[in-house]
Amino acid sequence: MRVKPSRVLLHLILAIGALIMIVPFAWMLISSLKSHAEISAYPPVIWPTEWVWSNYPNAMGFAPFGTYFRNSLLIAVGHTVINLALATMAGYALARVPFRGRSLIFMAILATMMIPTYTKIVPQYLIAKGMPFFGGNDYLGRGGFGWLDSWWVLIVPGALTPFAIFMFRQFYLSLPAELEEAARIDGMGEFAIFGKVMTPLVKPAIATVALITFENSWNNFLWPLIVTTRDDLRVIQVGLAAFQQVEKTEWAYLMAGSTLATIPMIVLFLFTQRYFVQGFATAGIK
């Protein structure tokens, strides 16, 4: 078969583009494994002569990256589980049960989807700080720090996204009513119909929402930045930013930290690309 020159050109352009996208990741990995001499050499050493794996344990000696990593993982898993539980239920109710005020509630949820972060974040902080009976607060939420610097504040506020409810509603809507009616004739209760009949049929939506929730939670920076000051509660993104501000020139350790903070998402993405792409495309087009 003859190779068309236009094909070659197409691949050439795409390959160069893809390379530009990948270079920072490759440079991060390579830099994280360079020796002290090679990382501060000029011109930069492209391919290290010696791979210094001990940069990783050494970086963890500078900052508790293990703890940061564990915190991020716990929070991301927590957010994913809670979001799936609450949003499937809410989406199901909105899609499958007619009741008075349903469209009003749905409209309200759509509206919350469009609220920008900065229109709510300051009061969110105040609510967390004023949580009664927590962190030395009295029953009116005065006197202490409330939920600040606690697991509560890291997990609860971000545990439900209106986007997930919306997504599940759309998927539940597309299921045929006969299924539900057949189950009802068999004498199944409403919750059993939801859990055993309908929800197993929206598995693609579950995968998509789970991945996007996990990704958002893992990458989240602003909220954990403002509500935590304790080192043992830092998530990896905040820990990394804090480490950079202290150790400005320890580039090999910084790149080791960055690698730890990005690798889980990269691996997850490469294995579940289909769901990610589907999710972002439907989120985009709706």
Partner: peptide, 20 residues
């Protein structure tokens, strides 16, 4: 995948790489 990868990686971590 290559073009989409930056979107799903943490901004903080990847901004540090650019800083470097």
């Amino acid at each position: 995948a290559a073009f989409f990868l930056p979107h799903i990686t943490a901004t903080v971590a990847i901004a540090l790489v650019w800083m470097w």
